[in-house]
């Protein structure tokens, strides 16, 4: 069937916009592709392409500095996630539910770590830790990470608390459940998707953080991003590319598995 002039025009615009979107995606994916490609580079430092090898995937496990910083980052990310999600969940509910003096100030304060450049907060925390004599290490990094993870968690979860929430809690108490039973049986399950995305976000933010960790880590142990930053001067070795490639693949696989599980669950229900 012949297309009308208007349909032709629409089709042309459609093609052009798809090309545009493709180009934007290309620019965003190029660094990821290059990063992965150079994990197979047969060279001690990544100066130029020197042939294909998979040796770095075996060798990275004997790079003790790399592996220990990876574990350190994972532990810190898990702990910050747990702390931030607990405080964030309870806080989001409290800030949504109750009225009190200074609530507006707290709400505004939550936006500071989200908006103000991270370096400012990192420096401010460093000065105050020095002042009170807190030695730098895992504790100081955890405080730093939670300080920006908590606001994100609160904002994410607050957005998921529906207007019905108060009524559902009332219904639960009306049926004889006390506050704790109500929280565990009604409130938490209804906001669970929000809690999960807050957890995912907190983990990602903490795991990928450079600025706060770099300022607050002290001399003993670096997180993975801090190690990479310090390697930058001498050159980043291909085993780091290999490790990063593995991490990306793990995350993407997990995401795909998750969406498959979600879909099959939905199908079962329908």
């Amino acid at each position: 069937m012949a297309l009308t002039r208007r349909e032709k025009k629409e089709k042309r615009i459609n093609i052009l916009s798809n090309i545009y979107a493709f180009l934007v995606y290309a620019v965003l994916y190029i660094p990821v592709a290059v990063m992965m490609a150079f994990s197979f580079n047969n060279q001690r430092y990544n100066y130029y392409w020197n042939g294909f090898t998979t040796q770095w995937y075996a060798k990275l496990f004997s790079n003790s500095a790399l592996i220990s910083s990876l574990w350190y980052s994972i532990i810190i990310a898990i702990l910050s996630t747990i702390i931030s999600v607990c405080i964030g969940t309870i806080g989001a509910l409290g800030l949504k539910k109750y009225e009190f003096k200074g609530k507006k100030a707290i709400n505004n304060m939550l936006y500071i770590p989200i908006i103000v450049p991270e370096i400012v907060l990192a420096v401010a925390l460093l000065i105050i830790f020095m002042k009170v004599g807190l030695s730098l290490g895992m504790g100081s990094i955890l405080i730093g990470h939670c300080t920006f993870c908590i606001p994100y968690a609160v904002v994410t979860i607050k957005g998921r608390i529906s207007g019905d929430n108060d009524t559902l809690e009332e219904a639960s108490m009306d049926l004889g459940a006390n506050r704790i039973q109500t929280f565990l049986r009604v409130t938490l399950p209804t906001i669970f998707p929000g809690v999960m995305s807050a957890a995912f976000l907190s983990f990602t933010l903490s795991f990928d953080d450079v600025v706060m960790s770099n300022m607050l880590s002290g001399a003993r142990q670096s997180t993975l991003p801090v190690l990479i930053l310090s390697m930058n001067k001498s050159g980043i070795t291909p085993d780091v590319n290999a490790l990063t490639t593995i991490m990306v693949l793990v995350i993407v696989t997990a995401m795909i598995l998750n969406s498959i599980i979600q879909r099959s669950l939905k199908k079962k229900k329908g």
Partner: peptide, 20 residues
């Protein structure tokens, strides 16, 4: 007394059924 200590029950305007 708290709501959960009273022997009365409520039918809510928008039903307030637990969605999960």
């Amino acid at each position: 007394k708290e709501p959960f200590q009273r022997n009365v029950n409520t039918v809510f305007q928008n039903y307030a059924l637990f969605p999960h």
